[in-house]
Design a protein around this nucleic acid. Structure first.
Lengths: 235, 235
DNA sequence: GCGTGCAAAAATGTCAACACTCCTTCTGCC
DNA sequence: GGCAGAAGGAGTGTTGACATTTTTGCACGC
């Protein structure tokens, strides 16, 4: 990485009872997701160790965890690099995400409580209001909460964890800013249908609606990317 | 772990160019999947280091990777333990696996080559023959190859990797031996339908057929487990 | 006999140093 | 002037040792 965009030696909290490697996983993941370290950039163990005020051991352990999560790629004797996510991989990630989100919708339709359904209703209404007023700053966090409520409400912790992992991996795609803000009206129509399917206790309809919601987000993103880059791979 | 079922100091291949931590990930994962280390058992770093003839550093790195993959669980200052997979988690894993496999079927129906379809046909025929003769030793590897061909043929490497990870995680469930060998005739009827849906180029049908195949395997396993254990959690 | 508390042993968390590999750069030769 | 090869530096791979925490075993007291 460039030492240019690095704060001047900010030691990580030395609070014991939580190992440094765990703290470092969050710290490094945060740096990557926030774009502080860009795709293709190398993670210099010595620099990172000095920056966080630790030795290389915990850094290496944290990096192994990040490797398994798909955030970085290790090359023997060369170092670890922030993964480059190509357009092809974005398509793959969205497809898997669609399948997972579809499952969440299906499970939710089978076992959602009335309170959950009413909460989802409220969130969609709030989002519609924000969208009508073009208030993106209000819309975005609501959208996030809405999706979190769905995967958490599915009652399948494994699914929720996997879904979150894939969403995070998608943030590695540098063109991610292109998609947000687009198609708010379309999104909300889809949100309405999703909640309707859940409220109707129709698992198949719910799965299909949730699946399509992600698929249409994929289509919107790919369409923008294609017109801007003519299909070439970018990281 | 008990030193009882450990071979007397078997050093890991010292071939460089591939880091010890990578080799150890495979070695440890193999030990866990093979049941050499049982759920709940602790992975003693010093013992493992001595056993493989390496220091604790690479062992710890490998363990971090296994933790992310869901094979072990680390407790601060206490050690890492082979994960216990409860019946509830098995249900979760199967549901996610069903979603992933359904996606594989859908993608395959959209883009499978004629050669792939004909290969799947042949595999199903071979499995039917093996099932008719009650030849489990022949059936099992064919079944494995069949499922591998489907996830690989989907053209989605991310999906294939995730699917394999979930299958491996399911092997942590100690009652796994209960399911195999059961319902061969049912399985083959499902296999036939899956291939038929792919050959018909019907993504929705294929997805549904592939989904149901996993769901029915889940039901068979849970039914056996429930009658044997009356629903209590087991690792 | 049983529970409490202390001490020793074991195991994990972390660090600093060494070994080897890869890349850069400089030098010498054609 | 350009290219091949060697020397140097930078960085990863690995190790052994130290510090702290947890566990275990035992003695003591109730």
């Amino acid at each position: 990485m460039n030492s240019a965009h690095l704060a001047p030696v900010q030691a990580v909290d030395a609070t014991r009872s939580v190992p440094l490697s765990k703290v470092l996983v969050d710290a490094l993941e945060g740096m990557i997701v926030a774009g502080e370290m860009r795709p293709g950039e190398r993670l210099n163990e010595q620099q990172l160790a000095q920056r966080f005020g630790v030795s290389r051991g915990p850094i290496r352990e944290a990096v192994r965890a990040l490797e398994g999560a798909g955030f970085v790629e290790a090359v023997t004797n060369r170092g670890v690099f922030v993964r480059r996510v190509t357009v092809a991989e974005v398509r793959e990630l969205y497809d898997v995400r669609a399948a997972l989100f579809g499952l969440a919708g299906r499970l939710l339709a089978e076992r959602a409580s009335e309170a959950t359904i009413s909460r989802l209703h409220d969130l969609v209404s709030a989002m519609e209001l924000a969208a009508a007023e073009r208030d993106f700053d209000a819309y975005y966090p609501l959208n996030l909460v809405f999706h979190e409520a769905i995967v958490d409400g599915s009652g399948n912790a494994t699914l929720a964890a996997q879904y979150r992992a894939f969403v995070k991996r998608l943030t590695l795609f540098r063109a991610r800013s292109l998609v947000q803000g687009g198609g708010l009206a379309v999104s909300n129509r889809e949100h309405r249908e999703m909640v309707a399917a859940i409220a109707a206790r129709d698992p198949v309809w719910a799965q299909e609606a949730h699946w399509r919601h992600v698929a249409s987000a994929k289509d919107r993103l790919l369409k923008v990317v294609r017109t801007e880059t003519h299909g070439e791979a970018l990281g």
